[in-house]
Simulated scan of single mutants.
Amino acid sequence: MIETRAKVGLAFLVVFLLGFAAGALSWSAYSRRREAMPQAVWTGKFNRERYVQELTEAVRLQPAQMGALNAALDETREEFLALRKRLQPQFEEVRQRARQRIRGVLNAEQQPRFEAFVKRWDEERRVQEQAASPPPASERKP
């Protein structure tokens, strides 16, 4: 009788350990596959180096074509910057209206903290925008 209980207990333990191992392997495979997937959501930042590398591989760009590609990307960058500059006042109006709405929700004690928060947030955004606008390829160091 004791032998049968021991065998059942051992069989239960083995099945449990096998299930745990299968779950761990499945989770590991899922995690690796998830990391390898391209990012489905645009983050708002254009990674030019990655774009050029992947485009070069995808269409097999020749070295002689790189100058024309960089010129096209530089022209497009300038168009986006001009568009951003034209639309910036409209974005700023929306931002200021949102802040006014938020100020209406806050009490007197929270107001100065909100102003400090906004100041810090604006500075971070300004730094990020400067970093996101590198010089054109023609002005970059080789």
Rank of each mutant, 00 (worst) to 15 (best):
P63C: 05
Q111V: 10
M66R: 12
R86L: 05
E115Y: 07
Q62S: 13
N107E: 15
L61Y: 07
W121M: 06
V59Q: 07
A64Q: 11
Q100K: 05
R120F: 15
R77Q: 14
P63A: 01
K85V: 03
L73A: 00
M66L: 07
Q111W: 10
R60V: 14
R97G: 02
Q110Y: 01
P89I: 00
L87C: 09
E75M: 04
N107I: 06
K85H: 08
A64F: 04
A108L: 05
A82I: 00
L69A: 02
R95K: 07
M66S: 00
P89A: 08
V94T: 12
D122T: 08
E78Q: 09
N107Y: 01
A64R: 11
E93S: 15
A71M: 01
V94M: 10
A98Y: 03
Q100G: 15
E124K: 02
A98D: 09
A71Y: 10
R95P: 08
W121L: 11
K119L: 11
E92T: 07
E115W: 13
A116G: 06
V105S: 04
K85M: 02
R103A: 14
E78F: 01
E93I: 08
Q62Y: 11
N107S: 03
F91K: 13
G67Y: 00
E75F: 09
Q90W: 13
A82R: 00
D74V: 02
A71E: 12
A71K: 12
I102F: 01
F117M: 03
R120P: 02
E109Y: 08
F117C: 03
F114K: 04
E93P: 07
M66K: 00
L81P: 01
F114E: 04
L83F: 04
K85N: 04
R99V: 11
R113H: 14
P112W: 04
A82N: 03
Q111P: 04
L87G: 11
E78A: 10
D122M: 13
I102C: 08
F91L: 14
W121N: 15
F114V: 04
I102Y: 07
Q62W: 07
E123I: 02
A108P: 00
E124L: 12
W121F: 13
E123K: 13
R120A: 02
Q62L: 11
A108H: 04
A82V: 02
R120K: 15
E79Q: 10
R120I: 12
Q111Y: 11
L83H: 11
A64P: 00
V118A: 10
